[in-house]
Design a protein around this nucleic acid. Structure first.
Length: 458
RNA sequence: GGCCCGGUGGCAGAGUGGCCAUGCAGAGGACUGCAAAUCCUCGUACGUCGGUUCGAUUCCGGCCCGGGCCUCCA
């Protein structure tokens, strides 16, 4: 199976060729933990989870290393700590826990390694020392800055020239910078702020250096895939590349750079600064299922912008209902899940999840139409195989269809169904329909079939 | 100002130089005591103006509209 991925570095789709097929290495920029994750934060997690699943499928589960960091030191965290008086450790432990819970609810596999910035400060210091030694960084007023003009081909990822950046500069340039584009590697901390000792005094790392340090340490100086949101192309990823390549003297940092499009609300970017976001946590609290949120996120191609709405999640839930209804009909058939070539090819073609999903729908139709056990087994195996790559349909069908909603006890519902059955046998259809309507009013839908009556929640 | 994405049927959303996406919603039919579910059938979709072509939604160019990055941001 040939995997094609759109590489931001070249702005084109490329055949994916791992550096070492025995250990395919991917790094995804993780969250800064100071608050609940919003849907926009969840998108790269879900999209690149599909990539992780694909790579594991193609190269084998033990031949892929997925690293996703946690940024647990940052000015926003410090600001939150100062505001509430809660310690940084306490804030990051709590919010990282929320993050784990929410991403698990979305069916995202945990990464193989989840390094935290605070655990890698010595490596960051070492990297900065190397950059200074090689003339790519300089110290100024207790800061250490990356010397952008020293790098010949800076700007490859974002396709920006130094001139462009000066022309478009919207920021006040700090007086100690030699060049406006120079960025911070290390900055001083005040006495009351967290800090680490360094050759340049007590301080803390700049934003970009942690990813260079952690990816270099865990995945090596050059690895396969680096991914994140489209807004990270500049400056974050551009600067990571500058740091890592200049420190290591390597031609590339990662071979393939992948970027997911934005989650939007009414056609506008969802972001904390705009205040138009909703969190995964609050959607789960409202009763939306994590799997439905996941499917909503996967219903558009990962590089396209996507408008996430409650209606959209509801639509995704309806699709899952269709899948689970079909699976519930064949729950007694044991199969070995294996994706069809079509589904696999769709996902391998730069993660075309909407196309894969449409294939899954056709498999459901096939499954519903199947008359022989053999046909049903083939369709079920294919459906589950594709679903596994997408990270959906992992639940027990009956549980999916019957859980959630009101607190009606299953035994009570079964009793009602029995009463209705008796009424039907006695041809008392008025009573039978009354029971059915009564249940429907409570969100319980009945379905009669030759094999009996089943129920599900609306 | 520089760089970069989009505009597909009522909605969501793939894709393709000539024929089917798919799901939801809608119409009709089969099945059902009636429903639900399921299956079958259906709807002159590709922003706009030109160009290339036997033929363009798909390639090229202009225009209009929307969005993003250039500052923290997934």
């Amino acid at each position: 199976m040939t995997i094609h991925l759109y590489n931001t570095l070249l702005r084109e789709k490329q055949i994916f060729e791992p550096i070492d097929a025995g250990n395919v290495r991917m790094y995804v920029c993780g969250p800064t933990v100071y608050d609940y994750a919003h849907i926009g934060n969840a998108r790269p997690v879900v999209c690149f989870d599909v990539l992780y699943r694909l790579l594991r499928h193609v190269y084998g589960e033990s031949h892929v290393t997925y690293v996703r960091n946690i940024t647990d030191i940052d000015d926003k965290i410090m600001a939150a700590a100062e505001k509430t008086g809660e310690s940084i450790e306490s804030i990051t432990a709590r919010t990282a826990g929320w993050y784990h819970d929410d991403m698990a609810a979305l069916g995202a596999l945990p990464p193989d390694r989840e390094p935290r910035a605070t655990e890698f400060v010595p490596q960051m210091v070492k990297l900065i020392e190397q950059l200074i030694a090689k003339g790519f960084a300089y110290e100024a007023e207790k800061h250490v800055l990356f010397n952008v003009p020293a790098m010949q081909d800076y700007g490859q990822l974002s396709k920006r020239s130094l001139d462009d950046m000066i022309a478009g500069a919207r920021v006040d340039v700090a007086p100690y910078k030699k060049h406006p584009a120079d960025f911070t590697l290390w900055k001083p901390s005040a006495e009351n702020q967290v800090g680490w000792p360094s050759p340049w005094g007590r301080g803390r790392p700049g934003w970009h250096i942690e990813c260079s340090a952690m990816s270099g340490e865990i995945l090596g100086q050059v690895f396969d895939i680096h991914a994140g949101g489209i807004d990270l192309i500049f400056p974050h990823h551009e600067n990571e590349i500058a740091q890592s390549r200049c420190a290591h003297g390597s031609a590339v940092m990662a071979k393939y750079w992948l970027h997911n499009g934005f989650v939007q609300v009414n056609g506008q970017k969802m972001s904390k600064s705009l205040g138009n976001f909703f969190t995964v946590h609050e959607l789960l609290e409202e009763g939306f299922r994590g799997e439905a949120i996941r499917l909503a996120l996967l219903s558009a191609h990962y590089r396209q912008p996507i408008d996430i709405t409650r209606e959209g999640i509801q639509d995704a839930k309806a699709q899952l209902d269709r899948f689970y209804r079909a699976l519930a009909m064949v729950s007694d058939l044991a199969v070995e899940a294996a994706p069809t070539d079509h589904v696999l090819a769709a996902i391998a073609d730069d993660l075309n999840t909407p196309l894969a999903l449409s294939e899954l729908h056709e498999l459901v139709t096939k499954l519903n139409k199947a008359t022989s056990q053999a046909e049903k087994k083939v369709a079920k195996a294919a459906l589950l195989g594709g679903a596994k790559l997408l990270g959906i349909l992992w639940q027990d069908p009956a549980k999916w269809l019957q859980s959630g909603g009101s607190a009606d006890d299953a035994a009570v519902i079964e009793a009602q169904i029995a009463a209705r059955l008796a009424a039907r046998k006695a041809k008392n259809f008025a009573e039978a329909d009354r029971i059915r309507d009564d249940l429907a009013a409570r969100g319980i839908l009945l379905e009669d079939s030759s094999s009996g009556t089943t129920w599900r929640r609306a």
